[in-house]
Amino acid sequence: MKVLVIHTSYQYKGGEDTVVAEEIKLLQLQGIMVELLEFNNHKNAFLKLLQLPFNLQSYFKTKEALALFKPDIVHIHNLHFGGSPSVIYAIKRSKIPFVITLHNYRLLCPSGILFHNGKLFLDSLSNKFPWKAVGSGVYKNSKLITFWLSLSIYLHNKLGTWKICNRYIVLSEHAKKLFLSSNLGLSASQFVVKPNFCSDPILKNQQAQDYFLYVGRLSEEKGIMLLLSVFSSCPYKVKIAGDGPLKDEVVKYSSRFPNIEFLGILNKTEVFTILESCSALVFPSIWFEGMPLTIIEAFACGIPVISSRIGAMETMITPDYNGLHFEVQSKEGFRKKLDDWHNLSEVQKQEYRLNARKTYENYYTPDKNAQQLLAIYNDVMNEEKLLLAETL
């Protein structure tokens, strides 16, 4: 099997870029021939944004890659905005089946994350054109750019571009429900749920220490201000690793409160080391996450997660089994769950840790993911062969 992976990389490397790289490695370990066609927004970003509805350069670049590599299937991850939907038409013209992983909600709202001004923004789900999103400037606080993104999504919805895709891979049942309840008009048969995964870490069997851990982007939608507010008014220690627009706030709190420690940016090895020795991971996100790799990595280390109950976290975390839930943006609820965790006996905590590891082994290992991904590819290719046979 030959797979062409198409991805527009982000200016600042994030979770999607990591998933793409890891999936390519995973496929290659299965003996699959993989080639990456990569676009980016690093140069001529404004010109690429203008060509968002149909980028001719991306179209011909895709056609060339398809002709040279001759893949059996194409896997698209991100087309925003350097790739553009022109890539889909290049694939269609070449009569090759393809799948798209929906890492975010960009097809539903120009915000991409269904979040704006400190709260969920769901207005775009039910309106034919997201005028409220435009008026609010949900993309980079720009009404003009938000309008341009909205217009491109709307036009391609009207053209039926999104219906061309053989299969959409979503990361959770929650995401699948959101897309099916939207005005995209896609069928349930076009969607399949496949979670993210992480490689099994080499653990050092470190003793659990008495601190909580946060690893991730330091931004509003991640619930960082809630985390700082809770830990600044309680005795429990928290270590924070990451970077983002609220870094200065984290630094300020860590200088004022000795129980809040800022670690900065850590590499993957350092993350696993500090994960393994923490008491529990805290995840106070206030938006519809796709499928947080940090939670999967915590489970791989046998670390329970104390998380807000929203989106993918509702199903990833089973209360009183591999972690605890609190209501979104609830300072009291968050603090209570920290108390509940602190008051558990070591025997009870160890049971949670064993269950966290079981969760990883049951759902998020590379082997499980490879099986799911190859099954999706084979289903799509077989369907395409049947359709072709019917037309002959």
Rank of each mutant, 00 (worst) to 15 (best):
M1H: 10
L56K: 12
V328T: 08
L293P: 03
V230G: 10
W131P: 09
A370Q: 09
I6G: 02
G264Y: 01
G160Q: 12
T62C: 09
L227Y: 09
S182T: 07
F257T: 08
D17I: 15
R217C: 10
L373P: 15
L108K: 00
G223M: 06
R353A: 15
I317Q: 13
N369W: 04
I310A: 12
N183S: 03
I169F: 06
I164V: 01
D210Y: 00
P71G: 01
A45F: 06
S254L: 04
L386S: 14
L4M: 08
T8L: 08
Q329E: 07
D210T: 00
Y214E: 15
E220S: 09
V282C: 12
A389D: 11
I91Y: 01
V138W: 01
L184Y: 04
G137P: 02
L27A: 06
I286W: 14
Y89L: 04
F299I: 13
E314L: 13
F212A: 04
E22Q: 15
L387N: 11
T273P: 08
Y214C: 09
E361N: 02
P110Q: 04
V20T: 10
E361Q: 03
F81D: 04
V238T: 05
L213H: 06
L213V: 04
K61M: 12
Q371A: 10
N127S: 14
H103R: 00
E289A: 15
V347D: 10
E383C: 05
V3R: 05
I274V: 01
S182H: 11
K368Q: 14
F283G: 02
G323Y: 14
I91N: 05
E261Q: 15
K385A: 14
G14P: 04
L218R: 13
E22G: 09
S150Q: 00
H342P: 00
E261Y: 12
G185C: 03
E261G: 07
S279F: 10
C278P: 01
Y168D: 04
D320Q: 09
I296K: 09
I286G: 15
S94R: 03
K48G: 06
F272G: 05
M381C: 11
W162L: 02
V138A: 00
E384R: 12
K132R: 05
T318H: 12
V193P: 02
S285Q: 03
I113D: 05
Y321K: 12
S152P: 09
V250A: 12
Y214T: 12
Y12M: 13
H325D: 13
L266W: 15
S345K: 14
E23C: 03
Y214S: 10
E383W: 07
N183V: 05
L226F: 13
G244D: 10
N157R: 14
V5I: 07
V3P: 13
R357A: 05
L144M: 15
I286F: 11
T391Q: 06
D72A: 12
G112W: 04
L374E: 06
K385D: 13
S232Y: 06
Y211R: 00
Y364V: 07
M1V: 09
V328D: 14
